[in-house]
Design a protein around this nucleic acid. Structure first.
Lengths: 152, 152
DNA sequence: GTAATTGCAAAGCTTTTGCAATTTA
DNA sequence: TAAATTGCAAAAGCTTTGCAATTAC
């Protein structure tokens, strides 16, 4: 079942002078199949479901190409490896410093901050590349109500 | 010239059961002397000015200790090594995707976003750990006014 | 056929770790 | 002296790279 996003991306690769290879298509398909974020290693795993001998270096090189073409992005959610996703709906990640939970928020919540920072500094905010840190609702509740306080 | 921040920090190390060693004092002094952010490697360089045989592993271990005690923090400004600074005024970093320029902003600009996110998700935002990406005023100007457009 | 892509293995870079030697309290 | 800290070297984890073999056009 050919996905139109995959076809469009392959077309863009070709248009940019690149070659439409099996491996590139496989990585794209893995990105499409995987709704969440995935690390390069996880994507390689997904690709291996269809093409058992998928090379990690090729996945990295393909992701780099896709990012250069604006087809995919990587984000840093914490200290581990980068996470990759297709460049579709722009969204942002709140990562809990305590438990590592990831909360996604839309882009629009940033509008007031964006306006303010633009006015103050001229900087055009596009905070997709890194996550925002803090503490999730659950951990906040756990640490602020003394009766339910627990270490772990 | 004993700096009161260094003394206070050494006191806190001692109070937490740690030992007040020459190396730890040297790393603290480097952090104080260096107003900006510095990588572990850069801090080791600074320490070496006084103590020529400063060990990088010790710097890392000391920074980890200082972070655990809330005395210092590390932030990720981009793809390179972490940057360290004393935990004084809370501030945040806007890093230009294009030229890498770092713009610092105070914590207060985040208040509206913080309220909004708290209301929407219960997440308590404390976005010190990662930088925010975007495009600095200069690069924005360079790419939006056709006459001054230039590559590089 | 020619240039781009891939596989492999090795290296790069930042950070962590095991362990014996040293230092602090 | 007992426990914590340090130095060293090695390892870990993620990512990039050189080069010969392969593949797309």
């Amino acid at each position: 079942m050919p996905d139109e996003r995959v076809e469009a991306a392959m077309e863009r690769i070709r248009a940019s002078g690149g070659r439409a290879t099996v491996d590139r298509r496989a990585v794209l398909e893995a990105l499409v199949r995987n709704q969440d974020h995935a690390t390069a290693e996880e994507l390689a795993e997904l690709v291996r479901a269809e093409h058992p001998d998928c090379n990690l270096a090729t996945v990295y090189r393909t992701l780099e190409l896709l990012e250069r073409l604006g087809i995919a992005f990587h984000v840093h959610l914490g200290h581990g490896p980068s996470q990759w996703h297709l460049a579709e709906a722009v969204h942002h990640h709140l990562v809990c410093d305590e438990c590592g939970a990831v909360v996604e928020v839309g882009d629009a919540v940033f509008d007031p901050l964006r306006r303010r920072i633009l006015a103050d500094t001229g900087f055009v905010l596009d905070p997709h590349h890194f996550s925002l840190s803090g503490r999730c609702a659950r951990c906040t509740a756990a640490s602020s109500s003394p009766s339910s306080k627990r270490k772990g």
